[in-house]
Write a protein that binds this DNA or RNA. Structure first.
Length: 226
DNA sequence: CCCTGATTCGC
DNA sequence: GCGAATCAGG
């Protein structure tokens, strides 16, 4: 897969929306988490709370995979060039401005900055965009209003189709179409799509036709032959 | 173990 | 430019 404009837009939208690189990667499909992160950085999208970047210790971690003699000496760069926008731009509420209501423009608030442009990501990774954002119109009529995702009480806490990953047991519980249909959700038996228990049900030795139940094993205590 | 993002560097 | 490999923190 390559980074088409469309995919880049999706990446940006999802990244800014706060989805993790992994989530973005499998929404986009065909790319790895690393690819997403790499691309995000290349695009200049920047550093959202990283678990590992918290401290500001200027110590040389000396990570550098493989051989890196780094023959270069100290590069004298005492002049920190003042770029215009180094600051992490996370929405900075003017004061105690709560309730991001739909039709609640703060009449008194100074226009501040132009809103970054709002793109939301729908199920499957498609983008909901403002009318003027892109020339490509969305073929199916866009939803008239955004309804808060409602998981439905029956399935709350259950493993849904959207929750499945390579390491989650995909054994169906109930039947598709039923309101509480979900998946097992246990950790898989490595190498299989199901957990250990359900592997046991999914993969059973095929007995020759006509054979009756295999005799129960006699782990011990069988008739002593001597 | 799992996850996360950051960084490096060969391609 | 791309992304696997690696690092490092949670």
């Amino acid at each position: 897969m390559s980074w088409t404009d469309e995919r880049i837009d999706q990446l940006k939208a999802m990244w800014e929306k706060g989805l993790t690189a992994s989530q973005i990667a499998d929404e986009l499909g065909g790319v790895s988490r690393n690819a997403v992160i790499g691309k995000a950085h290349r695009l200049g999208l920047q550093s959202r709370p990283s678990p590992v970047k918290a401290n500001e210790a200027p110590k040389k971690a000396a990570p550098v995979r493989k051989a890196t003699p780094s023959p270069e000496a100290e590069a004298p760069k005492p002049a920190p060039v003042q770029h215009s926008a180094p600051a992490p731009v996370r929405a900075a509420p003017p004061a105690a401005a709560p309730a991001p209501s739909f039709a609640a423009p703060a009449a008194d608030a100074p226009p501040a900055a132009p809103q970054p442009r709002i793109i939301s990501v729908g199920p499957g990774g498609f983008l909901r965009q403002g009318p003027g954002d892109q020339q490509a119109p969305i073929p199916p009529a866009p939803p008239r209003r955004l309804v808060p995702a409602k998981p439905s009480p029956e399935i709350a806490g259950k493993t849904t189709l959207l929750d499945l990953t390579e390491r989650i047991c995909k054994w169906p519980m109930g039947h598709p179409g039923e309101p509480d249909f979900h998946f097992c959700g246990e950790a898989v038996n490595p190498g299989f799509p199901y957990c250990v228990e359900h592997c046991g049900r999914a993969y059973q030795a095929q007995l020759p036709r006509g054979t009756r139940r295999p005799p129960p094993p006699l782990p011990f205590g069988g008739p002593r032959v001597r």
